[in-house]
């Protein structure tokens, strides 16, 4: 069994935290089924698309215990939207061939919550997204998740190959051990450009017309509670026609 996880570098460095849940879950799955081994059937490959600086994030996943890493980097991908990102990642996944692909789920960056769905649609793989738990039975090529969204909890199952995205409460990501960090330093991060994966850069599916910084909010009223704070708050609600 092979797992790949996806990582997206973004303006906000904290986003990488969220992909750690995906790496952790992939490691737990291979460990629960005999342990991971380089080039063996039981291994974890990290796949990331991003600028060259994304190697740091990829290295972190290797130090947690992933066996191999592929970074797709190409200047033509700067500013890539979700559709292009999913096209690139789906292409690499189908070339490599995995049983399961696990992604993080992120919601601030609007794109991240659609990229996993898009990858699964492009691969024509079952979509098992927003997983709060994952159960795998490799002998039956069977995978089940509990999907946790505002609409409730669904139990969803499918056969390999399948795409999973995980929510942050699924696990507690491990800290890389000293041994893991040293081992990760020796590992090769394979970089590929668009030509190597066989995709032509093409025009985007949507265009930004303009963008503006929003004016900071006008300074409001600030009072110190002297026992009448609650009453003054209610006056403000009434004056603003909020009650």
């Amino acid at each position: 069994m092979v797992d790949g996880t996806l990582d997206r570098e973004n303006v906000d460095a904290v986003l990488n935290d969220l992909d750690e849940y995906a790496v952790e879950e992939a490691l737990r799955i291979v460990e629960a089924h005999g342990g991971n081994e380089d080039d063996g059937p039981n291994s974890v490959t990290v796949i990331s698309m991003g600028p060259a600086r994304a190697t740091d994030a990829v290295r972190k996943a290797l130090s947690m215990g992933a066996n191999a890493a592929i970074l797709i980097t190409d200047d033509a991908l700067a500013g890539a939207d979700a559709l292009l990102t999913s096209e690139v990642l789906a292409k690499v996944i189908s070339t490599e061939g995995f049983d399961l692909v696990i992604c993080g789920t992120e919601s601030t960056d609007a794109r991240m919550s659609v990229v996993p769905a898009m990858i699964s649609a492009r691969l024509d793989w079952p979509q098992l997204t927003f997983a709060g738990s994952v159960t795998v039975d490799p002998s039956l090529s069977h995978v089940a998740i509990s999907r946790i969204t505002e609409a409730g909890v669904d139990l969803i199952e499918a056969s390999f190959p399948a795409l999973i995205s995980v929510v942050e409460k699924i696990n507690e990501p491990r800290y890389p051990s000293f041994k893991g960090i040293m081992a990760a330093k020796k590992r090769n991060i394979e970089t590929r450009d668009l030509a190597a994966i066989g995709i032509n850069a093409h025009s985007a599916w949507s265009q930004v017309i303009d963008s503006q910084l929003r004016p900071p909010r006008a300074a409001g009223i600030k009072i110190t509670d002297d026992g009448t704070g609650g009453a003054q708050l209610v006056d403000f609600l009434a004056e603003s026609k909020l009650i």
Partner: peptide, 20 residues
């Protein structure tokens, strides 16, 4: 904040609730 109260929520909220 359009309206900010520097204070203890356990004092301010009950008073505001009564006021509303």
């Amino acid at each position: 904040a359009d309206f900010g109260v520097i204070g203890d929520l356990f004092a301010v909220l009950p008073a505001a609730t009564e006021g509303v």
